[in-house]
């Protein structure tokens, strides 16, 4: 019982992080139909830039206690920073390639990803040492059920993730800007003909996806405070799994990304807890292949219409 409850709770916590990252993949795919492999590096940038800000404010010193709202201030600041970075990357690396074969954009994305990783690793940027993320969010045990602790930090993490996803949902389906995004994702040319400023909508989408990735980065760093250096294999695998979540849910579909994230979290944690932890990655990728074979468009994705 304890184990079941504990695993379920962890699955939700891990899954909501995957979902936040997956949203960025899915949104960019939705509007531009390409896999933005640099997205996971934006997530890393989110984690590391919030660490850098905390360090600049002196909160990383032993014994320092950040003010209660300091965590949220940093969350907003790193979201803004990463949004700016995402928009800049789109402007300078991807926009010149609009209309080029998708593979080219993909290679550019890989280039950008390598660039971010290796710049981040420079001694005067973030360096090659892992760092300890200070506890920016208050943490205490709220309740204890059957030997399982419900912690404030997990609650805030999952709460923030859910709040951001609801906000995104409202933005995409309830606002004019959201309608423009959906129009661009249906058909770029027609959207442009209808007077939708495609460039601005695409830039906004990148900014939004990057901000969500930044939020995921900070929340991840709260949960796993030992931050690996920016070029570490950890981040690559994490980004890959978030991408898998987006595909499983149906790439291009926002609710699908959320569902996919939670599903991947559940498969990983229940598989590791009840079958064998050795094959954890195997569960994720097997799920991916099964979904693709039986529902190629993903769980919530719409079947692609073949245009002749």
């Amino acid at each position: 019982m304890t184990k079941l409850l504990q695993t379920a709770m962890d699955a939700v916590a891990v899954g909501s992080l995957y979902a936040l990252i997956a949203l960025g993949y899915t949104m960019v795919y939705g509007v531009l139909k390409f896999i933005n492999f640099a997205h996971s590096d934006i997530f890393v940038l989110g984690a590391w830039s919030s660490f850098a800000m905390a360090a600049a404010l002196g909160w990383t010193k032993a014994g320092a206690t950040p003010p209660l709202l300091g965590g949220f201030a940093i969350l907003l600041a790193s979201m803004a920073f990463c949004a700016a970075a995402g928009i800049a990357i789109e402007r300078f690396a991807y926009r010149p390639l609009r209309g080029a074969p998708r593979l080219n954009v993909l290679i550019t994305a890989i280039g950008v990803s390598l660039l971010l990783q290796n710049v981040g690793q420079l001694p005067f940027v973030f360096g090659t040492q892992p760092q300890r993320m200070p506890q920016l969010l208050p943490d205490r045990v709220l309740a204890s059920v059957a030997g399982v602790d419900l912690r404030l930090v997990d609650l805030i993490g999952a709460g923030t993730a859910v709040a951001l996803m609801l906000g995104l949902e409202a933005l995409v389906f309830r606002t004019k800007l959201g309608r423009a995004m959906r129009a661009v994702s249906w058909d770029v040319k027609t959207a442009a003909l209808m007077g939708i400023p495609v460039d601005r909508v695409v830039a906004f989408t990148f900014g939004l996806g990057s901000a969500l990735a930044a939020a995921a980065g900070l929340l991840y760093a709260m949960k796993y405070p030992g931050l690996n250096q920016p070029a570490h294999a950890t981040w690559v695998l994490l980004g890959l799994k978030a991408f898998v979540a987006a595909v499983v849910g149906g790439i291009g579909n926002i609710r699908g990304a959320m569902l996919g994230g939670l599903l991947i979290g559940a498969v990983e944690l229940f598989g590791a807890a009840y079958f064998s932890p050795h094959l954890r990655d195997l569960y994720v990728f097997t799920l991916l292949i099964l979904v693709l074979l039986y529902r190629p468009a993903g769980l919530l994705g719409r079947a692609a219409v073949e245009k002749v």
Partner: peptide
């Protein structure tokens, strides 16, 4: 990486 992006 920079060369790659520029060439593309």
């Amino acid at each position: 990486a920079a060369l790659l992006v520029v060439v593309m």
